[in-house]
Structures are given as structure tokens and as C-alpha cells.
Design a protein around this nucleic acid. Structure first.
Lengths: 235, 235
DNA sequence: ATAAAAATATGATTAAAATCACAAATCAAT
DNA sequence: ATTGATTTGTGATTTTAATCATATTTTTAT
């Protein structure tokens, strides 16, 4: 985690209109600029670990980080990804508990750190910030419950199809149609809760069936409709 | 859903100190009393259904309700239980979306309904209410993520042991040590994400092993330590 | 009280996915 | 560029849990 070369002014940050902080006043944004600490996290580096005390929240400026829990026998369960504009760590700050997840950069990333005291100051001052944060928490809760139902009820094949579609939705594709996030087979397995070998086999099957194109870790979806059908998203 | 015979005054409600509304002023509690609508829900009756528009939140005064999603092929996935002091429906109200879960009483229950407008009024007025609600949402999010990891990584046997312990923790036991919540085997299966037959078989095994005592739907835990070991809660 | 419906119980069979084992390919660091 | 580590790929085997079938018991509604 190295100090960020240039700390952007929150007022000018083009994220202001889309993040949790969109309802802050100009003065409050100034306050935020003065009090935040920006840093870069190289791919593979850990921002914080499950169980550690974190003293503030992080707003993601650039890159992608995986947010995961460590289950029994040390197996990683990826809970979500954090990307530009997302805020992470707020759960621990709000409930005053140790981090319930670990966070690791899966590509070079830049994050802005905001201390608990500063965040609480803003929350008391601006009730709309609380509502914004509440909306984020509720959306995450919704997604967590949906995914719980999927893992509990769907087959591995259905879940893999679903996750490929979701990754494309969340991260988009480049000019060649390749999904803008690079994951190992093991990481894919750790999202959908299965064995690495199962992901490898199923991806091969999907390729054989003409649903996806694979070049190493690069995945390109060739037949969205069929994948949707497999994933059972409409039922 | 029948109208409640006596609408308790929120100021005098002995829930005031434990619910999300604990930081309200006396005036705000008066306002709440005037604007809430209380009702009773008989066992087996549905409070609201997934996908419906709900126009407010419900604070549970008495009873137990199951909160569940309907997965593909109509299979129910129980997401949580709501009991005295809990608030439900806030996610839909906060995000302005249709209900993401259905709610059904599993015993005779009494709930207080608070309209969206009234809730938002209080949220704007009292930033502490927003923080309280945020804390609740974060706690639920934490639990959802933990449970996601469990379903993804643990065996059905481990999950059943874990859920029995959790039910005892959440609902306590009566004088005879029986867990204060009565569920069908199917409902248990719909919590842990397995087939009803698997729950029936595993419960019988647990009984044979002297871990639990079963009398119909009444469950009494006989050996907490061993169940904890099976559930793998410490790893 | 009785009939109908729902839930429980148990056995047999099948299916899905995990695990194990090992080879080949790719990646990362020096 | 080389080497060591990690990741990918594939086959064989095992394990877990789902599914199917059917009998019995319990609950619910009339």
C-alpha cells in the first residue's frame, strides 16, 4: 500500500456525482478532501484482513478489489468485488466491529481512506448521507439474499452461467468483447462456491457448446441468450 | 390480517428501548403512535409477498414470521425470521423497490405498520434513526455474508447443527429446554438449503447420537458442545 | 369425529459434484 | 532467459446429497 502521488480534490473528482457522497455540500466535500488519505494498492496486495480493526472506510478510485471471507479450512469465499465509486469497510465502522471480510487488489488500485470520526461527523451533519449509505447497504443486502438463494438452490452449472453474465454486466467488455475482469478459475470457484476443477470442466463445456470463447483467463461471452437460459435467471 | 384490538402507545411500549426507534424524542414517538397502524396476523397468513409494492415498514410486536424468497421451481429459501422488536420491509422502502421477500407468520403475530412518508419524515429529522437503521442493515448484511459462506462451503450436516444452535440462541428455550420456535422439517430444509428428506434423516441421526431430543416438531438440544464441534463454528 | 391433506419416516436408486492424482501450460521473479 | 511456483486441464474414483417411491403418522378443516 503506497501513498498516492496526487490526492484528487473531492470537489473535482468525477466520482462525486455517483458515489455515496453525492449529497454532500461543497463545504463538506472540502472537509473530505482535507481529511482523506489516498493510496495505491498493487495487484495482489491486501488492503485489510478479516478480523482486523479498521479505523475508517475506503472509497475506490480505480482498480478492482476482491472482498472475501475465509471459511473453514481456509477456503476463500468471494462476497463481492469493489470497483471505482464503491465504498467498502463501512459495515465494520458502523457496527464498531472488526472487519468481517478481507480485501485484496486483483489489479492495481487506488483508494481514498476516510477516518471513522470524519465519517461520523458528516453522518450527523447530513442525514442524506446516512440515507445514501443505507441505500447501499440495502442493495448489498438484497444481492446477498438473492445469491444465498442461488447457492442454496441452483446447480453449479447454473451458477457459473449466472456469474459470467453478472461479471459482464458489472464490468462490461473491451472492444473485442472480453469481460473487463480477469479471474483465475479458482477465484471463479470461490465466487460460486464450488471446486476449481468443476469450474475448469464447466468452462470447457461452455466453450464446446459455443457459449463462450476462452483465451487463458480472458472470457468472451458468445451466446448471452443461451447462458441466460442455463442460468435460470428468469424463473 | 385483522386490525389489532388495542393500539399500544409507542411511548409506553416496552420495545422502545430496544428497537430501531430508541433514539427518537418523546414528540417523535407521539407522532409515531398517531401514525402507525397495528394488526394481527394469524399463523399461516401472509403479511406481504415478494414482488408486491409495500408502502411502509413493519415493526414486530409479537410472534414470529418467516422471511423468505421464492427460488426457481417455487422452492422457498428462508432468509431470516422476524420476532418481537425486529423491523422488516425497510429495504424495499429505502430503495423504492418491490418487496424482495415474502413474509408469513409461523405463529400468531402482531405488527405495527409505519408508512413510508412518516418514516422518511423521521429519517430526515433525526439522523440517529438513519444510523440505527444502518446498523441493523449492516448486521443483517454481515449475517447474510456469513451464511453465504456456510452454504457454499459446509456440508448439510454441519449446517443443520449450526442452525439448531442458532435457533436456540435466537429464540431461547422453554422450561423443558425445548427451542422456542416450531418449524416443520421442510422449513428447516428451506433454511439450510437442502432436501426435506435430508433434514429428516440427519435429525434422526442426531437423536441416535444423543445430540438432540425430538418430539414431533419440538427440538431439545442435549449436547451443545458436540453440536458445535459438528457445526465447525470455531474454524 | 372424521376425512382429507400435509408432514414424517425410511429404503433404494441416481445424479451431481468433490476429491485425488498427475501432466502440461502459464506466470512471476530473479 | 531460467527456474520455481502456480494454474490449468483431464481422467478415475468416491462421496454426498437429491430424487423417487411408498408407508405411516400427524395435523387441519369441516
Amino acid at each position: 500500500m503506497s501513498r498516492y502521488f496526487e490526492e484528487p480534490n473531492c470537489k473535482d473528482c468525477n466520482l462525486v456525482f455517483s458515489t455515496v457522497f453525492k449529497k454532500l455540500t461543497v463545504d463538506q466535500l472540502d472537509y473530505l478532501t482535507k481529511n482523506k488519505v489516498c493510496s495505491q494498492i498493487k495487484k495482489g496486495k491486501t488492503l485489510y484482513k478479516e478480523g482486523s480493526r479498521i479505523t475508517g472506510v475506503y472509497c475506490i478510485n480505480d482498480g478492482i478489489l476482491k472482498v472475501y471471507k475465509t471459511g473453514c479450512e481456509g477456503k476463500e469465499q468471494i462476497v463481492k468485488f469493489a470497483k471505482r465509486g464503491d465504498i467498502i469497510g463501512y459495515r465494520s465502522v458502523i457496527n464498531g466491529e472488526p472487519a468481517c471480510t478481507s480485501v485484496k487488489a486483483i489489479e492495481d488500485s487506488a483508494v481514498c481512506y476516510i477516518n471513522t470520526q470524519e465519517l461520523y461527523g458528516l453522518l450527523k451533519e447530513n442525514s442524506e448521507l446516512g440515507i445514501e449509505l443505507l441505500q447501499i447497504a440495502c442493495a448489498e443486502l438484497d444481492e446477498a439474499n438473492n445469491y444465498l438463494t442461488d447457492i442454496a438452490q441452483k446447480s453449479v452449472r447454473e451458477r457459473l452461467a449466472e456469474i459470467l453474465l453478472k461479471l459482464q454486466d458489472d464490468f462490461g467488455t473491451d472492444k473485442e468483447g472480453i469481460i473487463n475482469i480477469t479471474l483465475t478459475r479458482e477465484e471463479l470457484a470461490n465466487i460460486i462456491g464450488t471446486a476449481t476443477e468443476s469450474v475448469i470442466r464447466l468452462l470447457s463445456e461452455f466453450r464446446t457448446e459455443g457459449l463462450v470463447d476462452l483465451q487463458g483467463r480472458k472470457i468472451k461471452i458468445l451466446n448471452i441468450q443461451k447462458l441466460k437460459k442455463i442460468s435460470n435467471v428468469f424463473k
